[in-house]
Design a protein around this nucleic acid. Structure first.
Length: 112
DNA sequence: AGATTGACCGTGT
DNA sequence: GACACGGCCAATC
């Protein structure tokens, strides 16, 4: 296997698997998740999967932020407010209303 | 099956 | 740094 999506057959499953691999205290961008899922240009579709995702316990969709670290949408709680609170509570570095990607962006293992 | 929408991203002004 | 435009992909109506 060369990527986290090798065990998935559909795009949504790949996305879920990638997001599920994000460790606590770290965040990934939609573009990053899309790339790991096998569709480097499907950042929007990733958002759709999160939106339709019902397994929030298995898939920490709140750890997925915009390319600039901005928190975009959240289908649960009070939206981005709840999302931000959870990320901060998990130890993610924040800079104003945006996650500090320079410090807390998830760095997937390229080799293993 | 076709058209529209959406939790995006990159680039230009 | 903020606003505007276009492109890409998949789910939903």
């Amino acid at each position: 296997m060369t990527s986290l999506a090798d065990f998935s057959n559909t795009f949504s499953d790949s996305v879920r698997k990638v997001v599920a691999g994000i460790p606590t205290g770290k965040v990934a961008t939609y573009g990053q998740v899309a790339e790991l899922a096998g569709r480097p240009r499907a950042a929007r579709a990733v958002g759709m999967v999160m939106r339709t995702n019902k397994d929030t316990k298995a898939v920490p969709c709140h750890r997925v932020v915009g390319s600039n670290g901005a928190l975009t949408g959240y289908a649960y709680g009070s939206g981005v407010t709840t999302k931000k609170q959870m990320l901060q509570k998990e130890g993610v570095a924040f800079r104003g209303e945006r996650a500090d990607l320079a410090v807390s962006q998830w760095q997937p293992k390229i080799q293993k």
